[in-house]
């Protein structure tokens, strides 16, 4: 690939993102497979290259009508692979596998199509704040457009067929990245997590499966995909689950303000002070302090720092983004703490 992935943060400039104080981003994903090919885990490299070719020559339409960027993930640099991953456009397994695969990305980076992830197609749409209803409507239009040039594997009883039975049926996964620092501080997070599990939701950390709750960011998503319509699944999330989480979080923030405003101010201002003056910052530390500043900004205790700047920094301080922006070396054992501290300091000046 000649031109590198741009270091702009499209799709994350949502200054007025709905419920943005508590919801960092929304995502809708559909899993689809093509008829006439084995699923990815059982297909030969030749078949997988064929699938790539078939999808690339199809008319994808929708957000790809005007411009689409195809990235050959098999042959691109490891820095670009990590950039795409940090930007949530491709998954961790997609970074690490070695078979023929590629990703299509829309001009505004809100839409991506992974070809040959666990399924032949993984369609994904991403937006800042709480926008699950809008995203899913756009997604169904997009899915319908693709279906006009590619035939999907479908079964009258099981619905859209997927490699893993946890995705079969609608193939839909809706998720919201929540910021819940208030619940963490009043120590009610565990209670909320428990009730989420009772509702059969998956809760994960900052970067999907297996990451812990860095900066009190939690991604909630549906775990079942069969037996209910897409609309019912989306509605449960957009109409009940996310608003409920947000209501709990806002109540916790009010409690904190009433109980000990000085302690809260100290916590968020101290974090801002560190980010504005320290000289070495690890990735984990930077997320932790940025998240605290984010809480202060949302509650009006910090002025002069817009929330969307913090949200951009949450993305930009990740290793590959930092490497692209500052030219610092990337890789195991490389110390990027100095460049990260410099980058954040100059952004928050």
């Amino acid at each position: 690939m000649n031109n590198p992935i741009l270091p702009t943060i499209a799709g994350f400039d949502g200054a007025d993102a709905p419920l943005g104080d508590c919801v960092l981003s929304s995502r809708v994903r559909l899993a689809r497979n093509l008829v006439g090919f084995n699923f990815v885990s059982r297909a030969s490299p030749e078949q997988l290259a064929d699938v790539v070719h078939r999808v690339q020559s199809a008319r994808l339409g929708g957000p790809f009508e005007s411009a689409v960027r195809w990235v050959n993930v098999q042959s691109t640099t490891s820095l670009d692979r990590l950039l795409l991953f940090e930007r949530n456009l491709i998954s961790r397994p997609f970074v690490e596998s070695t078979h023929p695969r590629c990703v299509a990305i829309s001009a505004d980076e809100s839409t991506s199509v992974m070809v040959n992830e666990e399924d032949h197609l993984r369609l994904q749409m991403l937006a800042p704040g709480m926008q699950l209803r809008q995203l899913s409507e756009r997604m169904f239009v997009f899915d319908g457009a693709i279906e006009r040039s590619l035939e999907y594997a479908f079964h009258p009883r099981f619905g859209y067929l997927t490699a893993c039975t946890t995705n079969v049926g609608t193939g839909i996964r809706v998720s919201a990245m929540l910021h819940l620092p208030g619940l963490a501080l009043v120590q009610e997070l565990e209670k909320v997590q428990r009730s989420a599990r009772e509702l059969h939701l998956a809760i994960r950390g900052f970067h999907g499966e297996g990451t812990d709750a860095l900066g009190d960011f939690y991604q909630v998503s549906n775990q079942t995909t069969l037996g209910r319509s897409e609309q019912a699944i989306v509605e449960q999330f957009a109409g009940e689950i996310v608003p409920q989480f947000v209501a709990y979080e806002l109540a916790a923030r009010r409690t904190l303000l009433e109980r000990d405003p000085a302690a809260l101010d100290d916590r968020v201002q101290r974090a801002l002070g560190i980010l504005r003056s320290c000289r070495l910052l690890s990735f984990e530390e930077s997320i932790k302090f940025l998240a605290r500043v984010r809480l202060g900004v949302s509650l009006g205790r910090i002025s002069g720092v817009p929330r969307h700047l913090i949200d951009q920094l949450l993305l930009a301080v990740q290793p590959a983004h930092l490497s692209r922006a500052t030219g610092c070396a990337l890789g195991n054992g490389r110390d990027d703490r100095g460049p990260r501290a410099d980058f954040i300091r100059s952004s928050l000046r």
Partner: peptide
């Protein structure tokens, strides 16, 4: 198997091609 991973559901109730 699907019934076990999908809370007992074994029948699709959504969109279709």
């Amino acid at each position: 198997l699907i019934g076990r991973t999908q809370e007992g559901a074994t029948t699709h109730a959504g969109r279709h091609p």
